[in-house]
Simulated scan of single mutants.
Amino acid sequence: MNIQLRFFASVRESLGTSQETLAVPEQVKTVGDVRAFLRERGGAWQEVLADGRALRMACNQQMTGPETRITDGCEVAFFPPVTGG
Score class of each variant (00 low, 15 high):
R12M: 02
F37Y: 15
E75A: 12
W45F: 14
Q46D: 13
I70H: 06
V24L: 12
V24C: 01
G52F: 06
Q19A: 15
S14N: 15
I70A: 04
T21A: 13
Q27T: 12
T30I: 03
V34G: 00
F79H: 03
V11Q: 03
A77M: 10
R69N: 11
E13V: 06
P80R: 02
A44E: 13
V24W: 05
Q61M: 13
Q19L: 07
Q46F: 07
C59K: 09
E75D: 11
E26H: 12
A23Q: 13
A77D: 04
D72M: 02
G16W: 08
R41Y: 02
Q46Y: 01
A44P: 10
T30M: 02
T68Y: 01
C59N: 11
D72H: 07
R41L: 02
M57Q: 11
A58K: 03
R53V: 11
F37A: 05
G42T: 01
D33S: 04
L49I: 06
G65S: 11
T68P: 00
A58I: 00
D72G: 13
F37V: 00
C74Q: 08
L22H: 07
A77H: 03
M57G: 10
T71L: 14
I70N: 05
Q19M: 10
R69K: 14
P80I: 06
G65I: 03
T30W: 07
G52Q: 10
F78P: 00
G52L: 03
I70T: 09
Q62A: 11
T21Y: 06
A77L: 02
R56Q: 14
Q19C: 09
S14K: 15
V31P: 01
E67M: 01
D51M: 08
N60K: 07
F37K: 00
P25L: 05
V34L: 01
G52E: 10
A54L: 11
A36D: 12
G73L: 05
V48T: 15
K29Y: 00
K29S: 09
E13R: 11
P80Y: 03
V34R: 00
G42F: 06
A58M: 12
F78K: 05
A9W: 07
L15V: 02
D51R: 11
M63C: 07
V34A: 01
M57H: 04
S18F: 02
P25D: 04
E47Q: 12
A50T: 09
E75W: 04
C59M: 10
E40W: 00
L22R: 13
T21C: 09
A50Q: 08
Q61A: 13
E13F: 09
Q46N: 13
N60P: 06
S14F: 03
E40N: 12
E67L: 09
E20R: 05
Q62W: 05
E47K: 10
E40M: 12
G42W: 01
R56Y: 11
D72V: 10
